[in-house]
Structure formats: structure tokens, C-alpha cells
Computed example of a mutant assay.
Amino acid sequence: METINLGEADGLPPVEWAAVVEKLDAGSVPQADAPNARTTWLSTLNEDGGPHVTAVGAIWVDGTFWFQTGAGTRKGRNVARDRRCSVAVSVRDADVVIEGDAVRVTEPGAVARVARAWAEQGWPAEPDESGSGITAPFNAPSLGPPPWNVYRIEPRSATVVWSAEPGGLTRFRF
């Protein structure tokens, strides 16, 4: 992994990637009165190359973000055509952006593991009959009926703004 200290000119130390992963693994959320809310944002590329940004119920499992969507949604069509995407989230003391490629996951064991992780966080997802998608009693109406496709982000880079003392701004290339 390459670490680039973007805050060096301001005398800031580089952020340690292990500290970021620790917060993501713990499901760390900003303090209730923090200015950064706990929303995960997914950015994909529209057909014309412009960005499409939407809030998603992404989850951090096995060292990366996962999301689900219907095949006919804009984000579903976008990642089917161009896998490049980014996920942005605020955690306690940091804002994190992961850039990479969305890869559809159909392997039943992986789909089941991620569905369990969503269920443990309160969304009762489970694998569909084929094991290659997920279903749940509710989801965003715009996703269409289940089953929904599951995607894993294969990260290429991350940018982290660390707000806790001593602060930091670092880019990581994986």
C-alpha cells in the first residue's frame, strides 16, 4: 500500500490506515451532535460520464464495502456498464472515501455472510432461493421487487480526513 500524506504541507502527520479500518470494523458512528451524519453515499458513473450520487445501506464486511440494488435501478445499470464507483462515509473522528470497482457477488456463501451482517445491524436480509441474491421484507421502493443483486467494492484507493487531534489528510493506494 502506498501512503500519501496530503496534509504534510500543513504539518499534519499521515493517518494510519489500521486506525481507519479499526473504526470501520467497529461500525463507529459520529457523535450524536457531530456535523457529519451517518449516511453512506455511493457514487457511480452515468452513461454520459456524469456522476450519480445516492445514499445507500452499504455495509463494511471483510475489509471492504458491500451494497445491494435492483438490476433496473440507475446505480445497478451504471455499475453493470462501468464498474468504477466510490463510497463515502463519516465515522467517529474521520471522513472516508473509498474508490474502486463494484463487483457483483453471486457466490452463495459470500451472499449469505453479507446478508447475515445486514441482519445483525437490523435489516432482516437473507439469501434468495438461488443463494445468489438477497431478499428482505422491506427495502427502498425504487429498487423494485426482490431479489436484489449484491456488490462488493474492490478498493483502489482511499482518502481519509482525520478530525481528531492531531488531525490528518491522507490518500492510500492499494
Rank of each mutant, 00 (worst) to 15 (best):
D33S: 11
G109S: 09
D10P: 07
G63C: 05
P145N: 06
V97I: 15
A102N: 10
L169D: 04
I134W: 11
V87G: 00
D101C: 09
E16S: 12
D48C: 10
D33E: 13
R77P: 08
D101V: 06
D128E: 03
V21Q: 11
V97H: 04
W60T: 01
F138T: 09
L45M: 12
F65T: 04
R113A: 15
R113M: 04
G63M: 01
N46Y: 10
N36D: 12
A158V: 00
F138S: 14
C85N: 02
P146L: 02
G167W: 01
A71T: 10
V87P: 02
R104V: 14
S163R: 13
E2H: 08
V29C: 13
W66A: 07
V61R: 03
D10W: 15
T44V: 08
P124S: 08
V21H: 07
W118T: 06
Q121T: 12
I59Q: 00
T39L: 14
A80C: 08
D128R: 00
G100P: 08
G133T: 11
I59N: 05
E107Y: 07
E99R: 00
R152Q: 13
G144Y: 13
R156W: 13
P166C: 08
T54R: 12
T106P: 04
R104A: 15
A19Q: 14
R38M: 12
Y151V: 01
R74T: 11
T3V: 15
T40M: 12
A110H: 06
T159W: 05
D10F: 15
E126L: 14
A140V: 11
G50F: 14
V97L: 14
A115N: 01
E107W: 03
P108F: 05
V15H: 00
W60R: 04
V61H: 06
V29G: 10
W162K: 07
D82E: 11
G133Q: 13
G72Q: 03
T40G: 05
M1C: 00
A18V: 05
N5L: 02
S142D: 08
R81M: 07
T3A: 07
A34L: 11
N36G: 14
